[in-house]
Amino acid sequence: MTNTAAPPTSTPPAPATESVAVVKRTSPVARIFENYALLILTAAVFLFFTFYPPSSAAFPTINNLNVILGSQAVVATIAIAALFPLISGYFDFSLGATAAMAQVLCAGFMANSGWPIWAAIIVPILIAGVVGVLNGFLVTRLHMSPFVTTLGMAMLLSGVTLWYTGGQTIISGIDPAITRFGSTRFIGLPVVVYIVLALAIVAWYFFTHTPYGRSLYAIGSNAASARLVGVRVDRNVWWSFIVAAVIAGGAGVMQLARMGSATASGGNELLFPALAAVFLGATAITPGFFNVVGTIIGAIFVSISVSGLTLSGASGWAANVFNGLALLVAVGLSTYLGRRKRRG
């Protein structure tokens, strides 16, 4: 026997309101809250330490604000640097070590070799660029795992830096012009803060308003698809490593200007908070994706929290514990948000 359907006439096309194209949507209010949760949280933390008795005396002062912003400038710079490879889906673990190397070399060239200040600034940044070229080569041409490659590079750089300084802190012989610049203020804020702000604006323009920046997001989403819409995947990824390393080199010089001295280190004290900022940033503005504005908010959030904790009586351990926790929470959250995006 053959039983068949109701004739088409008996089932008129479903009205548009009952469209079966199932798309789960979050409500607009929830979405705004999600996008700006980090900003709101930062404001809340700021208010908390402003009124919390143990810290309320020292925390909300112009001086402390200056310390917070000034010390965070270098971390924020490295965070912006880290965005370039991260957005295209690659991890650069060597940025902290690159910055530390640039800091030591810049100091050393002035103190040990008596170079003029301009050469002592430019050459370390160029050397940092070479590190980026190497990272990019190993990752895009030899297809080495970016994580292990840049981790190895970080160890190598910190070793070479240690060899260069012989374990000594370089403190004398540094051109005072550079430290003077580090403590110069403009309209009440350290000049380095404006530099970071300018860098952030350029990076924001690059990522949102140039085809190259947008192509990095495309590569991070699906490199094979990106290649078949005309993106030069390898070249752009390579460049992202170079640009990141050059910015990190600049961050190292900036760190020297603020500290006035240089010691060989692995640069982890710069890299870890920077990564915390980047991953926190990926939970804000465009949740699930690394972005410049979120990164800056993340950097401010981390430094305000650490400063407030320190002023409330927590000692040296507070910074690491907080950065570590922030990084874990941030990675967890941005992974969750990213996965939700992919699943739709």
Partner: peptide, 12 residues
């Protein structure tokens, strides 16, 4: 179709 069963054909 559109979330409904519009046809059932048995041994057809």
């Amino acid at each position: 179709r559109d979330g409904r069963v519009v046809g059932t054909l048995v041994d057809a």
